[in-house]
Simulated scan of single mutants.
Amino acid sequence: MITLQNIEKVYRTSTIETLALNNINLDIRKGEFVSIMGPSGCGKSTLLNVMGLLDEPSKGTVQLDGQAVTQYRDKELARLRNQKIGFIFQSFHLINDLTVLDNVEIPLLYRSQNGRPRQDYAKDALTKVGLSNRMKHFPKQLSGGQKQRVAIARAIVGNPDIILADEPTGNLDSAMGNEIMNILQQLNDDGATIVMVTHDEQMAKRTHRLIRLFDGTQVL
């Protein structure tokens, strides 16, 4: 599903060079639920961004479904992200001036999906995360857990093969965090491949496999 070979990521300024990822080799198999852990600043989010084709590695190759994509143009990468990958962020990244339903429809707009089918897909996604009664609400009217459910609905509305989640329970209390994990596990049971960055050992234990990072290097 996702294969990283000899991945290195270096950030450079005029005065300093920072090695964010060093010789990462990973193979995320179809249907897995994988967690990534490590101290703050160790490269977890950078690794997730490389997997999600949001950030280009300085060295190494990224393969998606067996196809090397490292040299793809930006337009080709954007198309792959939209069709194959759903993103969930710790800070939700919802648009406050749009309703819940409108927020969830956004990925389908980039596919030029027609209005009525687009709305139907968004309603189905919100039903899956238990928010069918909040479609006309605005983000400011929702709790943190509800906002994260909207973010999950937005991530799954296009039926992606891969879901990348960056601290999806980080801003939530333990009860709501467990509810979000239950949703992610159900999505995984339904066939989605999920990679999740987390600081929570208990959440990580609920996934199939744990990858640990330290100073940009995979801990074996």
Results as ranks from 00 to 15, higher is better:
residue 149 R to S: 07
residue 149 R to N: 10
residue 152 I to H: 08
residue 153 A to F: 04
residue 154 R to H: 11
residue 155 A to R: 02
residue 155 A to F: 01
residue 155 A to E: 00
residue 156 I to M: 06
residue 156 I to Y: 00
residue 157 V to T: 06
residue 157 V to C: 06
residue 157 V to W: 03
residue 159 N to K: 10
residue 159 N to D: 07
residue 161 D to Y: 10
residue 161 D to W: 05
residue 162 I to G: 01
residue 163 I to K: 00
residue 163 I to F: 07
residue 163 I to L: 15
residue 163 I to R: 01
residue 163 I to G: 01
residue 164 L to V: 04
residue 164 L to N: 05
residue 165 A to M: 04
residue 165 A to E: 11
residue 165 A to Q: 13
residue 166 D to R: 00
residue 166 D to L: 00
residue 167 E to A: 02
residue 169 T to G: 05
residue 169 T to W: 06
residue 169 T to I: 12
residue 170 G to F: 01
residue 170 G to L: 02
residue 170 G to W: 02
residue 171 N to T: 03
residue 171 N to K: 02
residue 171 N to L: 00
residue 172 L to M: 09
residue 172 L to V: 11
residue 176 M to E: 13
residue 176 M to W: 11
residue 176 M to N: 15
residue 176 M to V: 12
residue 177 G to A: 11
residue 178 N to S: 15
residue 178 N to W: 10
residue 178 N to T: 14
residue 178 N to G: 15
residue 179 E to H: 10
residue 180 I to R: 06
residue 180 I to W: 06
residue 181 M to N: 06
residue 182 N to C: 14
residue 183 I to K: 10
residue 183 I to F: 11
residue 184 L to I: 02
residue 184 L to F: 03
residue 184 L to D: 00
residue 184 L to Y: 01
residue 184 L to E: 00
residue 185 Q to E: 13
residue 186 Q to V: 10
residue 188 N to H: 10
residue 188 N to S: 13
residue 189 D to T: 14
residue 191 G to M: 07
residue 191 G to S: 11
residue 192 A to F: 05
residue 193 T to S: 04
